[in-house]
């Protein structure tokens, strides 16, 4: 099974799922639009499947792989950021996220050097952010326990 063919099958399954979600509530007037779109999606996915059936046709646009080993810390940071932003407050979590991303992915040799470079940058960046959003635009962000 090649990957392009899998993509097309996945797309087809997705459109059928969406179609089912639009038909299930049983209110034809308000669900007409999503129904029509889901049918269009299914047709397009079927066309993709037909076109990509022969492996030769898919040459050149094969999906590229996801470097999980490099990216898993980023996903962990994203999830933690979302979970902590409301209870801890926006500025603290944002600062933590900034430091975490820039240190973990720093090209510097050791973590100490990486952290030394990241800290000043993180303070400058959040300082500017605070100035723009809080003082200039008066956006109110969720305040948590610390800040």
């Amino acid at each position: 099974m090649n990957a392009t063919r899998l993509t097309s099958i996945g797309a087809l399954v997705l459109s059928l799922l969406l179609y089912w979600a639009a038909v299930a509530p049983g209110d034809p007037r308000s669900y007409l639009f999503p129904e029509v779109i889901a049918i269009a999606m299914a047709i397009l996915a079927a066309a993709m499947l037909v076109r990509n059936w022969k492996p030769s046709a898919a040459k050149g646009n094969a999906p590229s792989s996801v470097p999980w080993s490099r990216l898993w810390p980023a996903f962990v940071i994203f999830v933690a950021y979302l979970l902590l932003a409301q209870p801890l407050g926006f500025y603290l979590t944002s600062w933590l996220a900034f430091v975490a991303i820039s240190t973990v992915y720093s090209p510097a040799e050791s973590s100490i050097i990486g952290a030394k470079r990241c800290l000043p940058a993180s303070f400058v960046f959040l300082g500017i952010l605070y100035l723009v959003f809080v003082l200039l635009l008066q956006v109110q962000t969720p305040r948590g326990v610390l800040f």
Binding site: Y81, F90, I101, S102, V104, P107, F125, F133, T141
Partner: peptide, 20 residues
Amino acid sequence: VSNNFMAAAVTVLAVFGTYS
């Protein structure tokens, strides 16, 4: 700007921008 700083800054900006 090296990518680690850029990525960190864009992430935080994306969250702030979206929230506001």
